[in-house]
Write a protein that binds this DNA or RNA. Structure first.
Ligand SMILES: [Mn+2]
Ligand SMILES: [Mn+2]
Ligand SMILES: [Mn+2]
Ligand SMILES: [Mn+2]
Lengths: 218, 218
DNA sequence: TTATAAAATTAGGTTTGCCTAATTTTATAA
DNA sequence: TTATAAAATTAGGCAAACCTAATTTTATAA
């Protein structure tokens, strides 16, 4: 069984390995992701390598072994299921659930994820639009096209958010954007790629390119 | 904020202070309750004393301060609410829920216990018959009379169990005894205080005095 | 190619929460 | 009262998971 900390490392490595950019997973990238010092990451890389959960090659960076991948997916599964619980059953807000799930995901008990999944009615996606892995580890592909990739004049459904920070989610809340919201791109500013959009056919609003990159569409 | 370990100590001290026997709470009693070494308990007594959560007097033993009491009750509250969730919503068995709640009780987030309580419909008792503290810290008195205190010929309702170990609960399950079950004392054996009982008017069964002491009646 | 910057690693520390073994204090019983 | 047993404490250590500071390796740019 893995410790809380080991699980957080596995999850971070998994998340990095899912990135579309396909960059190698470096010591510093992991440190950055977890807010830890690179020296600490070196310690943990050694530990997880010994446990055969990752492989490390200074050229290719860190890679999850099949077992590491399996373990990581089970944590992601629990994280996302708990998020659904917190939003739907306990009525927490969109921007609050992530932090709580960050702790709940580490609770280990036979069948816990499966029972939770059943209780929640086998949800396919978590409240941020991320797919929930099944018990067998299979999971739907994440949404990858962002609003920033959309065409001017096009109208898109918000399928997921890339950034799940509470700052971003609070901003979305303020703009009344949720999963399922329809966004039309009215104009793109050539200068800095800002977008002028209409939210659910409302009045024109301007958002940054960074904003657009963090909205995933279907 | 208190660590997991500090919380477990506070809870153990609280539990010991609730005992009807009114014995002083000694280093060794705490060690016993937590399965730790007395030397470790001495360390933690120092730490909790520094944090002003307990007071220690070698004569009178350990006592929770008002703040320590408050903190302990909030953990008990979460523990018991999570137990209700696990039994009622996730359909875990009586004997499985305690261990999971032992971990869930440490999850900290604004309002978590209150929201859980609301979601569960403000339950008064946990699945073992223990009263659930309210948000303000108030809680009903625990049941204290045991079946062993009952009269021959008397019929009693099982209100709670004193021992919540999975061994005891599995035994109860086998005997088909639950909270609410009616037990009639047919005879008490003078030799060792064994009890001959009838469960929900079923056929006579013999149980030990230790068994009788761990069934609380209302 | 060489200087510089960035990334990775090593060396050595800290805190938390445990432990064992030895010692001291306190209780109990002859 | 004194011997013995039990309880509490001290001393010293260990593993986990971090850290800072120093050093080494690798990448990049002039
Ligand atoms: Mn986590
Ligand atoms: Mn999520
Ligand atoms: Mn606990
Ligand atoms: Mn209980």
């Amino acid at each position: 069984m893995n410790t809380f900390s080991e699980e957080n490392y596995l999850k971070a490595i998994f998340r990095l390995s899912q990135m579309p950019d396909n960059k190698k997973i470096s010591t510093s990238a992991i440190a950055e992701a977890l807010g830890n010092n690179p020296a600490s990451v070196v310690d943990m890389i050694r530990k997880l390598t010994d446990k055969q959960l990752i492989e490390y090659d200074k050229k290719k960076g860190v890679k999850l072994t099949p077992q590491g991948q399996k373990d990581a997916i089970q944590i992601v599964r629990k994280h996302r299921l708990w998020e659904v619980f917190l939003l739907e059953k306990l009525e927490y807000r969109w921007d609050e659930i992530h932090d709580i799930a960050e702790e709940l995901e580490h609770i280990k008990y036979h069948d816990l994820a499966d029972r939770l999944e059943k209780f929640l009615g086998f949800p396919e996606y978590d409240p941020h639009g991320d797919p929930i892995p099944k018990a067998n580890g299979k999971m739907a592909k994440s949404f990858s096209a962002s609003l920033a990739d959309g065409k001017v004049g096009g109208s898109y459904r918000v399928a997921a958010v890339r950034d799940t920070s509470s700052e971003f989610l609070k901003y979305l809340h303020k703009l009344q954007i949720n999963i399922g919201t329809q966004i039309k791109i009215i104009e793109q500013i050539a200068f800095d790629h800002s977008l002028i959009i209409s939210i659910d056919n409302g009045e024109a609003t301007t958002v940054s390119s960074k904003f657009g990159e963090n909205i995933l569409i279907s």
